[in-house]
Design a protein around this nucleic acid. Structure first.
Length: 545
RNA sequence: GGGGUUAUAGCUCAGCUGGAUAGAGCAACAGAUUCCUAAUCUGUAGGCCGGCGGUUCAAAUCCGCCUAACCCCA
């Protein structure tokens, strides 16, 4: 819709320039918005005000010229208001026709080709497999998942990836932690040191290990014991993570193991940078000269003991991503990693790519509250609430909605008790209820939906609903471009509001056959759009509640 | 000490590239269903958009400084 209006406007301006009414070099970027005030029409543009400077005329005069030259078959009324706004009122016929488009495209309605098939990788969650996913990870998981879905709907070729940090010291600690618990099960009196994972899940892993292998580990030397424990715990942890995510409706196209980078890929990445002159030696360590690319200091990549740093592996990993030919790499990171962005951008640039290929969505922290009180969480201390626990407590639909409903820039307070107590006021139920209500209407209908008399749909509430339905493609475009999935929950809510208002104003199954059939057609289109939006959010669309 | 994010109604938050009278939910108050699900709808009230400067025809939005909270780094 916006695109059509813009092209009509551009035509109008071109014509005015050609006729000599406007003195402009070229037609500028035209933007269109939906005015806050309904009285201002369906759409509006500030084009005349933007042009005022370069054309050297007052905005209202320019607006008059544009309006005089404006021709369009979808606009009912066009007028000038305020300091120079041009307001448009659409013909209802356009809205009626859009219902047919929705019906025809069905599950594909809302999909657009703005992404033009560009290949985008979204990497998210990527939690170390040393413990279960906790509530702090959930938000990034949902944000990444929904962002990926929306970008796919916007016409990008999207791949979702999980990077498994399965190499490095934390894996050895995992092995050590498991071994100590295992020996405890065998009857040893163990005092847990500070530098191990203390969570109860380690005990469970150790118990499983014992159930499978009995005491046979003790016959091996300590190095072997540690390795067996490490690998056993790793596999169990990873399986748990995959299961938790799957239950949360999150599936990845690719699970990338850090181990596949050691040591060859890492060496290759370093060699590449060394050839380009970005590697130097100092104090027995190997450094990456990231300050050449705007980082505030250079970074160690190989420590003096010869072991690679996290950054070394991340370099190799991102080189691998770049070589896979993605046009855009989107990483979803927690706010505690934001300081990592400049050095990763430096890495991308050092490899010879545009640093803007990498885009990081920084997701602010989640504070879990219970009865208004902060739940303290520390992975090391073993006191944390898992993703699974929260999802079981409030339900995955509500959990997903809550995690994605706020701007990623804002901190999120998630009160469990509130989420449960207020479940009847939960926005997610409000949206789902609209969907269920439509099914109820359709179940009760004795007639079949028919597009024959859509021109009977002229009630204010009907027009509002149809306009809301027509907005979905524009919403998808805006959300995909801004990477701000929370806007989709706002849209879902507004759409539900438009429907509930319609429901209370217009009876669908009425005595008038023609009107009933037209309204059934409208209601079915609304059902489809609600369903499409909920699907993008990964939330179920119940037919009964 | 340096950096990031946030600050908007009593509470939780929207406000897309600067635009017309700053919006929604919850809470409060007043109403609505002989009829498709009242988990709904309609209305009222509630604001120095953290503070001070600056840019602009126009600032909640952009820039600078200050304050507070959270998070990173030293």
């Amino acid at each position: 819709m916006e695109a059509e209006l813009i092209s009509f406007l551009v035509e109008s301006v071109k014509k005015a320039i050609y006729d000599g009414d406007l003195d402009l070099e070229k037609v500028p970027e035209v933007s269109i918005e939906v005015p806050r005030e309904k009285g201002h029409g369906d759409y509006a543009t500030n084009l005349a005000m933007v042009l005022a400077g370069q054309a050297g005329m007052n905005p209202r005069k320019i607006a008059e010229i544009i309006v005089e030259n404006f021709e369009s078959d979808i606009v009912e009324d066009i007028n000038i208001a305020g300091p120079g706004f041009i307001n448009f009122k659409l013909k209802n016929a356009w809205l009626w026709n859009n219902l047919k488009i929705i019906t025809k495209r069905a599950a594909d309605y809302g999909k657009i080709d703005a992404g033009k098939g560009k290949r985008v990788q979204v990497e998210f969650v990527s939690v170390n497999p040393t413990g279960p996913l906790h509530v702090g990870h959930s938000r990034g998981a949902v944000v990444g998942d929904v962002t990926a879905s929306i970008m796919e709907a916007a016409g990008y070729d999207v791949e979702k990836e999980y990077y498994i940090n399965d190499a490095g010291n934390q894996m050895d600690i995992l092995g050590k932690s498991t071994l100590l618990r295992y020996r405890e099960i065998l009857g040893e009196d163990i005092e847990m040191p500070e530098d191990v994972y203390a969570g109860d899940y380690i005990k469970e892993i150790a118990q499983d290990l014992y159930d499978e292998h009995g005491a046979e580990l003790m016959e091996k030397d300590e190095e072997q014991q540690l390795e067996i424990c490490r690998e056993y715990a790793y596999q169990e942890m990873l399986a748990d993570i995959e299961e938790d995510l799957e239950e949360f409706g999150i599936e990845f196209d690719n699970w990338f193991s850090e181990r596949t980078l050691h040591p060859d890929k890492i060496e290759q990445a370093i060699d590449l940078l060394r050839d380009k002159g970005y590697i130097f030696e100092k104090e027995d360590a190997l450094w990456f000269k990231s300050t050449d690319f705007g980082d505030d200091k250079d970074r160690v990549i190989i420590k003096s003991d010869g072991s690679p740093t996290y950054l070394a592996a991340d370099m190799a990993y991102h080189l691998d991503k770049l070589e896979r030919g993605f046009d855009k790499l989107i990483n979803v990171w927690g706010a505690d990693h934001h300081g990592y962005i400049p050095r990763m951008k430096a890495v991308i640039e050092a490899f010879g790519y545009d640093k803007d290929i990498l885009e990081v969505i920084v997701v602010q922290m989640v504070t879990l509250l219970r009865n208004g009180k902060k739940v303290p969480m520390s992975k090391r201390a073993g006191s944390f609430v898992t993703m699974k626990e929260v999802n079981q407590e409030v339900g995955t639909d509500a959990a997903r909605y809550y995690y994605v409903m706020r701007s990623t820039d804002s901190h999120l307070d998630f009160d469990l008790e509130l989420a449960k107590e207020e479940s009847s006021n939960n926005p997610v139920y409000y949206v789902q209820y609209a969907h269920a209500r439509i099914h109820s209407i359709l179940d009760n209908a004795e007639l079949k939906a028919d597009a024959e008399n859509l021109d009977l749909l002229t009630h204010e509430a009907e027009l509002e609903l149809m306009k809301m339905l027509a907005k979905l493609p524009e919403e998808i475009k805006m959300i995909a471009e801004s990477r701000q999935p929370h806007h989709l929950t706002t849209y879902a809510y507004d759409l539900a509001t438009a429907f509930h208002s319609f429901y209370n104003n217009c009876r669908v199954n009425t005595d008038s056959k023609e009107l009933a059939q037209a309204r059934l057609y409208l209601v079915n289109a609304a059902r489809q759009v609600l369903k499409n939006v909920l699907t993008l959010l990964g939330i179920s669309a119940p037919e009964q509640m």
